[in-house]
Design a protein around this nucleic acid. Structure first.
Lengths: 241, 241
DNA sequence: TTAATAGTGTCTATGAGACACTATGCA
DNA sequence: TGCATAGTGTCTCATAGACACTATTAA
């Protein structure tokens, strides 16, 4: 061990540190496709490009708390599903200075997504086009409502891709899917969520069997309203065990 | 947005930052069980407890580079499978100061594991007992060779548990299992690795079928030596496509 | 020749996809 | 009464577990 390393080991307070930030992928569904909320950068660097909402981590703040603060301050969202994704630490990810960023995934039900968009005029919806290839950083595209490709700032394209891929991976065996639904929902809505995330059609009887056999769904006894045909049963998610 | 937030947003260099570290779970197999390499702490805090090898992240160092440096300096290992696990940011995880740590998982084949243990006298083997319950921080036990429970420093028990659970989750559908084997290995050795990580016996014909059908295994044409019975075919891992 | 494990053939159980069917509420 | 979707019965197919069997090498 060199003398420098020893000193750094002994008194790291004496050495300069990277800055630490959190960035949030605010993910929802829009027209049957995954979509994220982005902010347009007005200043250097990457002015004019689109970025994930983020912020620096305070000395007296956990990572979760920092993520929740960003969620509150930049999107006006009080509470939702939040999960740590991955920590990005490339040397040149921000040209101003060394910033390490802990990417998080927030899942927004349709209403929360719409409310945030309505309440914060700076936010923009980007539809995400995530191909099936690639493990961590496939060539994701963020599209505006008009279908234009939005240029993304920093390494935020990687974060967006990772968010969707992580969600895909967990969807089958975990309960994350319910975080994108309102409290009461039909089996068709649940299937729509899965199909949107997986970007593939699913078999109806098999899907229903799997979900019902899992024991996470409690029928509410009520039915959806406002259809011009047979209304479907409404279910509620009940935590396993 | 408050004035303070605005300033922090604009000039984070002016505000104190958490220190940033990496910690490494050096995982191998020992007598058919997962095992990790630990260092005994000699100083405050947690003196006398056992800790994962770790170090601070330099300003000019990526997270991967910091992890590789720790691997080299503290375990004498030049190269092995390395993966980021999770970032731990609780406020009180280190009583000296605020330290956020990016936990990593390093997988060591038996020989590398033994070499590190031999070359670095400070390192201790701990057999890991990871129950099947719990998603992130089950009640893991680290046991010395004599079967005594080793007291762990900081939140390192959580990191150890997470490492094994992550590995369990990925073992089936990814190629991580091969990182714990030498370049040439028998199907029995591969099955032993899977059984040790999953902590459950597996069906031999089914396991062989699955592995061979996957197309990741190339027979070398040679056979293992030194057995007193029929020697098994040696295989090599060939990256898919 | 025997011991001990490598390696395989085949039956069964399980779960998913396919597809057609019945059920039901509203216009 | 008919439409459109909810919801189901059942066949087939793919895959994993069980179990017994054959193959092969060294001592």
């Amino acid at each position: 061990m060199s003398k420098t390393d020893f000193l750094a080991d002994y008194d790291p307070a004496a050495y300069p540190r990277p800055a630490l930030a959190v960035d949030l992928v605010l993910l929802g569904l829009r027209d049957g496709r995954p979509a994220a909320l982005l902010l347009k950068r007005t200043r250097h660097p990457h002015a004019g490009r689109w970025a994930l909402p983020g912020g620096f981590v305070g000395l007296d703040e956990t990572l979760d708390a920092a993520a929740e603060r960003v969620l509150r301050e930049k999107a006006g969202i009080a509470q939702t599903y939040l999960e740590q994704l991955y920590t990005f630490g490339a040397l040149d990810r921000d040209p101003r200075m060394r910033i390490v960023s802990v990417a998080h995934l927030a899942l927004l039900p349709e209403q929360t997504f719409a409310d945030a968009l309505e309440g914060q005029p700076d936010l923009m919806v980007a539809t995400l086009d995530v191909p099936w290839t690639g493990e961590t950083g496939g060539p994701i595209s963020a599209l505006s409502r008009r279908g234009e490709t939005l240029p993304l700032a920093f390494d935020h394209a990687d974060m967006l891709a990772l968010a969707v891929l992580r969600l895909r991976g967990k969807l089958d065996y975990s309960d994350v899917g319910f975080a994108l639904l309102p409290e009461q929902f039909t089996l068709r809505q649940l299937q729509d969520v899965h199909e949107a995330i997986l970007a593939t059609p699913l078999n109806k009887p098999a899907f229903r069997r799997r979900m019902l056999d899992r024991g996470w769904l409690a029928p509410t006894g009520t039915r959806e309203a406002g259809t011009s045909f047979r209304p479907a049963e409404l279910y509620r998610f009940t935590r396993p065990r």
